[in-house]
Design a binder for these strands. Structure first.
Lengths: 127, 127
DNA sequence: GAAATAGTACGCCGATCGTCAAACTATACT
DNA sequence: AGTATAGTTTGACGATCGGCGTACTATTTC
């Protein structure tokens, strides 16, 4: 069922497993704020922002179980904060920067800056 | 126990009933985001921001019961988003703009802007 | 002191949350 | 085909959430 259009060399292609994402216009501020109000999810978002690239779930390595990790990534996806796509056995994650910036200008950046500032204040423990 | 410094004429002074507020340094980003992720509380915050003045709880008039209203105001206070003080039988509420701006620069404004934009998009129903 | 006003405290409810372990699915590698 | 890798699903758990009504407290006004 491969319906991919842009082959990218030796890396595995996207597969048929589908993931539901809210359309840009369907993203709601309260859902985004709720998604960001959990420390584990904030960690994911900050990592994604720092790397500014697609990352697999496992590369982020939260101190919770695999199933809890799955849960947090789903909350982030369903709230519209991240985009996920299957690639081989992995699932790539990326921030929906453009969509968020279009809907809520400056919000993501100020949240990320606030998180960084707070981490500094609290002594670098990131929690 | 009136320890008020700026008498403002015929209106009642602050009374002895005490309200716990987190110190500025104790305010946590995740608590603020959680506080703002509820539509009723967002309504309160937006109203406070628009009026840019102290308001009583009852002036804001949420479509929930009195006790639920009390609950929401407490969440906002305990998260550090608003400051509350008793004045006679009323309780005055104000945004902690300075503290929030010092801790999380630009955050409150971008959240308020985002809420306004979303209200526009969604047709002015404020929910 | 009595009535009115403004908000609190205390349970209670059903729903959602964050967490886990166990069993499972999908893909890749050999 | 068989094994390894990566993530999902399900169902459970205790905790928290947003909501309510009722009874209560504090203050002002009469």
């Amino acid at each position: 069922m491969q319906t991919q259009t842009t082959p990218t060399g030796p890396q595995p292609q996207a597969t048929g497993r589908s993931l539901e994402h809210p359309r840009r216009e369907a993203i709601r501020l309260e859902d985004v704020l709720h998604a960001l109000s959990d420390p584990m999810r904030m960690r994911v978002v900050r990592t994604l922002a720092e790397e500014s690239a697609e990352l697999t779930c496992s590369v982020i390595d939260l101190p919770v179980s695999k199933s809890t990790t799955t849960h947090h990534f789903r909350v982030l996806r369903e709230s519209g904060v991240i985009h996920q796509i299957y690639r081989g056995t992995a699932k790539m994650n990326a921030l929906r920067r453009e969509d968020l910036e279009a809907l809520f200008p400056g919000l993501l950046d100020s949240v990320l800056a606030a998180a960084a500032l707070q981490e500094g204040r609290l002594g670098g423990d990131r929690g």
